[in-house]
């Protein structure tokens, strides 16, 4: 049986889709069978970030409505043999995803994969609650910024009440992934510190992904950032996070700014 991960945040634009693609590729790189599932019906983007946008024939809604079989809708990644994508549909009908339909698809997927990673839409509406419904692990993606932390706190409350695990009286294993971490602003004291966010949300830390042009560059190419340039700082952060998900006990590194003497002087004076 697969482990089911939901990547969620409440707030939009914090890096859920980037994270889904990056963790999916990082886990698949270790040889595990991984499927990433886009729950953002009407506004799909995971296909684009994975570089598979031109190979979408059938989607999640087609499978639920019986217009396609699951294997027909799954898209195999061009770079990693064990990585698959189930795209969302572009239909405007948000009710196209039904509880029973999602249950059936997730159940089928978890029989054939080691990891099922659900990319949640922003918000706390139906799409988001359906995406978290089956979660064993929730990766709560948060930026060190007030509105993102507030929305994450809200999402944590929903994870504790509206998931299948919560209904069974169990708890979802929730992990915090701090993204768009800016070491320069952190040093200047203008960004919430990692400890602050951890203290406020009281979640265990899965990793810290630094703000980096590498993320944008990888998305331009349609390659998950964790495999685009594996030596880049965000790639290392995501690959380490994947190892933690697999149970490795790995210390989390807080990104530091890399500045020469001149840069240090400029930063203080800025």
């Amino acid at each position: 049986m697969a482990k089911i991960i939901t990547v969620t945040s409440g707030k939009g634009g914090v890096g859920k889709t980037t994270t889904t693609a990056a963790l999916g590729a990082a886990l698949a790189r270790t040889g595990d069978k991984v499927v990433v599932v886009d729950f953002d019906v009407g506004l799909r983007n995971l296909d684009l970030i994975m570089g598979a946008e031109r190979r979408v024939v059938y989607d999640f809604v087609n499978v639920i409505q019986g217009d396609a079989r699951l294997p027909q809708a799954l898209i195999k990644d061009k770079r990693l043999d064990s990585l698959f994508l189930l795209p969302a549909s572009q239909t405007r009908d948000k009710d196209a995803l039904t509880e029973e339909g999602v249950d059936k698809v997730i159940e089928d997927l978890s029989r054939h994969f080691d990891w099922v990673i659900c990319d949640s839409p922003a918000g706390i509406e139906r799409g988001a609650t359906l995406a978290m419904r089956h979660a064993d692990i929730a990766v709560v993606v948060t930026n060190p910024e007030v509105s993102s932390v507030r929305d994450s706190d809200r999402i944590v409350g929903i994870l504790d009440s509206k998931t299948l695990k919560a209904e069974r009286g169990e708890t979802v294993d929730k992990r915090l992934l701090l993204t768009r971490y800016d070491a320069v602003r952190a040093a200047r004291g203008d960004m919430l510190k990692t400890e602050d966010v951890l203290d406020i949300l009281s979640l265990p830390l899965l990793g810290i992904v630094p703000e980096s042009p590498d993320v944008l560059r990888a998305s331009n190419f349609g390659v998950p950032v964790s495999i685009h340039d594996p030596d880049s700082a965000p790639a290392r952060a995501y690959n380490d996070a994947a190892r933690r998900l697999k149970g490795e006990d790995l210390a989390v590194e807080v990104p530091k700014q890399k500045l020469g003497l001149f840069g240090k002087f400029l930063r203080r004076a800025a």
Partner: peptide
């Protein structure tokens, strides 16, 4: 000291 303490 920066604005982070206010945010917190």
């Amino acid at each position: 000291n920066g604005s982070a303490p206010q945010a917190r």
